[in-house]
Amino acid sequence: MTSSVDSAAIPPVNQSIEQPVAKICGEPLMEIPQDLYIPPDALEVFLDSFQGPLDLLLYLIRKHNLDILDIPMVQLTQQYMAYVDMMEVEQFELAAEYLLMTALLIEIKSRMLLPVPVTENEEEKDPRAELVQRLLKYEQIKLAALRLNELPQADRDFSTVQVWMEQSTHDRLPNVSVDMLRQTWLGLLARAKINRHHQINREALSVRVYMSQVLRNLHQCGQIVFHELFSPAATVTEVIVTFLAILELAKEMLVEISQPEVLGVIYVRSVDAV
Rank of each mutant, 00 (worst) to 15 (best):
L215T: 05
W164R: 11
T242Q: 02
L146H: 10
Y267T: 01
I106C: 04
E238H: 13
S159I: 10
D70Q: 08
A250C: 06
L148D: 10
P20H: 05
V274R: 13
M86G: 07
N14R: 09
Q153A: 15
G187A: 14
K125Y: 10
P152G: 04
L189K: 07
A8T: 12
G264V: 04
A192G: 05
L99R: 06
I106T: 06
W185Q: 11
I240V: 13
V118A: 09
I17W: 04
N201E: 15
M87F: 15
Q34A: 14
V255F: 00
A103P: 02
A144S: 10
P260E: 04
L135Q: 01
W164T: 13
F158E: 06
A129N: 08
P53L: 02
E130L: 09
A154R: 13
L57W: 01
R134K: 13
H170R: 15
L143F: 09
P40W: 07
K125E: 14
E18M: 09
L135A: 00
K23S: 07
D171E: 13
V13W: 11
L47S: 08
R172V: 14
K63P: 01
H227N: 08
E97P: 04
Y210L: 08
E90W: 04
Q51S: 15
L186G: 10
N121Y: 13
E88S: 06
A192Q: 00
D70V: 03
L131V: 01
H198L: 15
I68F: 03
L57I: 03
L249C: 03
A42G: 04
L29P: 02
G222P: 03
L60I: 06
Q34D: 11
Y98G: 01
Q223T: 12
R156P: 01
H197N: 14
T2P: 03
F50V: 04
A22M: 08
Y210H: 05
L57F: 00
I194Q: 11
E93C: 05
R191E: 14
L47V: 08
H227P: 02
E203F: 13
S177V: 07
P117N: 09
A192H: 00
V163T: 06
Q199V: 15
R147M: 13
W185I: 06
A245Y: 00
N65M: 06
K193M: 14
Q140L: 11
I200Y: 14
L54D: 00
E107K: 14
E122K: 13
Q51T: 13
N121H: 10
S49Y: 07
M87H: 05
I32P: 02
S7G: 14
V84C: 15
V13I: 11
Q140G: 09
N149G: 07
